[in-house]
Design a protein around this nucleic acid. Structure first.
Lengths: 127, 127
DNA sequence: CAAGATATATCGGTTTCAGATATATTGCAA
DNA sequence: TTGCAATATATCTGAAACCGATATATCTTG
């Protein structure tokens, strides 16, 4: 059960980039987004509920995403019971633009970091 | 006086990586390190004194760097005057190992982020 | 001789982080 | 059939990080 955080922590900017990327593939909802990120990163990126939900709310307020509530009907229980709710997020056009900005910023960021470590004789270039 | 933070902020981990990279090219001191980073990143990475000095102190305590004080002699003033002090930092072997770790972590980090944005149809790969 | 650059360092208000907590439903296995 | 894990959203809160401002002092240049 090794818990080494070898990979640097995610800043909110990076988290936003990843969330926008996930949503660019189609609408999703909070819990699924966090599971997708964990699964696709082999558990190296973990976005907890306390980071994800405030971020999604912020993104909604900024108009990057649009939302819909889904009422999940219970299969076995009373069909008139309230049931669980699921909040779907889909990328707004403003969010698509933001995603492109974040990708560009990430490219600059990476190439700048690379320019520093590239001068280190023992460092291989980051492919 | 545009102050757009186009590039994501630096986490302390990333700052440490950059500082270690600079020191891997040879000993330096705080003020010079911050100037080098700004110059080599075309001012996109700015490590202020309030981030750099505490980080250098921490790195020293962790044995990543070793230090020496230099007494800078004034050209014009009294040769017995105290003069300005300059604290030189040089990479310790522990720091070299840490640098390699940070580089590896950065590579993993970058390739993970790339794996997310690569699935975005509009995203070019980060070279 | 004043202003700006060099040089190190801390203070303190704001923001961010992430584990814990809260609440409720659903599915499954003992 | 009951209880636990998983699903699902959301906030609270103590700790850590961030970064502009401040402090102090020297050196250089016009």
């Amino acid at each position: 059960m090794a818990r080494k955080t070898a990979t640097p922590q995610l800043t909110q900017d990076h988290t936003e980039l990843i969330v926008l990327s996930v949503l660019s593939e189609g609408p999703s909802y909070g819990y699924s987004i966090s599971k997708q990120i964990a699964a696709r990163s082999e558990d190296e990126f973990r976005i907890g509920a306390s980071q994800l939900y405030p971020l999604l709310t912020k993104m909604e307020k900024q108009g990057l995403v649009e939302t819909d509530w889904e009422e999940i009907k219970s299969k076995s229980a009373d069909p008139d019971a309230p049931g669980r709710k699921r909040k779907w997020y889909r990328l707004a056009s403003k969010g698509e633009r933001r995603l492109q900005q974040r990708i560009e910023a990430h490219k600059r960021f990476t190439s700048l970091i690379n320019s520093f470590i590239a001068t280190d004789p023992a460092a291989g270039a980051v492919a």
